[in-house]
Design a protein around this nucleic acid. Structure first.
Lengths: 232, 232
DNA sequence: CCAAAAGTGTTCACGGTACACCCATGC
DNA sequence: GCATGGGTGTACCGTGAACACTTTTGG
């Protein structure tokens, strides 16, 4: 901000747009909004909106998510800022993109009450997106795929209680590669941040054990200098 | 940008601020500007300024660097955006922060011709910084330290021709830990992206070999699926 | 008793780490 | 010839990868 002249700086509209990820049954999903106004009416776009006076960027992202989709976000992280002059055909808009993780929680893969025009799409079958949102999604996917390998983001997308098989399937789906069952279990269990809960009964075949992620244990592990890594 | 009402969005001043890194003789440096205007007159700050009409964010970062410091940047990457409502005491400013790498090139650790009020500081002895710039620097350092371990950024900070000892010293300085000489050399040379040039003569003791980084070889190595890593 | 998923150990190859001495050069 | 930094190889260990059978359960 070391401006040289005293001329007033140009003022620009600032938006926040969020790439919301969900996961269910081996598929990664993305929450999109159908645009109700020009430009790009009827096209799908990322949830988001303009930053208001005196409002933090992250707060704006939360607020817009709440207003437009009603989803409960368990993780929100800034991704990148987009400022190409013509990215919005109406007027100059700079957009600060975020990405968020939402727990799919059972089968409830629907948008919150408010927004009838919000829908989950599998990332493998996304519609054509408005603005430069395809680019933003691309970057978010890259970030998610890379960060999931050394940060415990998986546990923000999976149900609170899960089996090792579900956990493995999750990594396989997001990283798009198969993992060895025995090696995967050995590694995960060695970290010792999962708490064994009980057996899941009333399942067709042999009952799997349910686990829960213990963040406190994870943090202690980190402090001991042990780094989490999957799929390396 | 899925605004729900037709009310005009709030307009905000958008700045770009860049953390400029240089390196020389075992020390990492940072290029700062002494502020000539209020607020924070006389304090040191990151080079930067307001984005103008129709100007890309990255172009704005380049332009401001050129105007304020005259340095020739070999690498520029977006870092993070800062938007706390009161981060600038005058009025609302959102700042998109970048970080840049500059080749110190011999002893020329001075600012470009234009800016008399620009100076290099060792990162270990930074002055008090204006605005929230200390926070930005912190994040840039983290990013540099982590990225340098798996991306070839070192070669954008070192002179074009360097010895293995200089290269090792560079990593030791930035990562703040000592590396084993034999293991370091073995590893680096195994990657086979360095070109042996000649012996550096007229040096006090045994003449070291000078090397040059060959980006083409590096890229081919990457394509073969080999990942660069130092200090792991 | 059969079908289907859950669960479990061992071996091998490779990369990381630790470690000490000879070599070339200028003075 | 000596002081100083330049340069080199080997042995060990831990982690990652490959790989197949037994157990549990519901129908």
């Amino acid at each position: 901000m070391g401006e040289k002249s005293f001329s007033e700086p140009v003022k620009i509209s600032v938006a926040v747009d969020t790439v919301v990820f969900g996961y269910e049954e081996g598929q990664l999903f993305l929450l999109l909004i159908e645009r109700a106004f020009e430009p790009f009416v009827g096209q799908w776009a990322l949830p988001g909106g303009f930053v208001t006076e005196g409002e933090d960027l992250e707060s704006a992202a939360y607020r817009e998510l709440q207003e437009e989709t009603g989803v409960e976000t368990v993780y929100l992280e800034q991704l990148y800022s987009y400022g190409a002059p013509k990215r919005d055909p109406r007027f100059r808009v700079i957009s600060v993109a975020y990405y968020a993780l939402v727990r799919a929680q059972g089968l409830n893969l629907k948008a919150g009450s408010d927004a009838k025009n919000a829908r989950w799409f599998p990332v493998s079958k996304l519609p054509k997106l408005a603005f430069d949102h395809a680019q933003i999604v691309e970057r978010a996917l890259e970030r998610l795929r890379s960060k999931i390998q050394y940060e415990p983001l998986a546990f923000d997308l999976l149900p609170v209680e899960f089996t090792l098989q579900q956990l493995q399937q999750f990594f396989e789906a997001v990283l798009d590669k198969t993992l060895d069952k025995r090696n995967f279990r050995k590694k995960i269990q060695a970290y010792d941040f999962l708490k064994e809960l009980r057996k899941l009964k009333n399942v067709k075949f042999r009952s799997p054990v349910l686990y829960r992620f213990e963040r406190a244990k994870f943090d202690r592990m980190r402090k001991r200098g042990i780094t989490f890594s999957v799929g390396a």
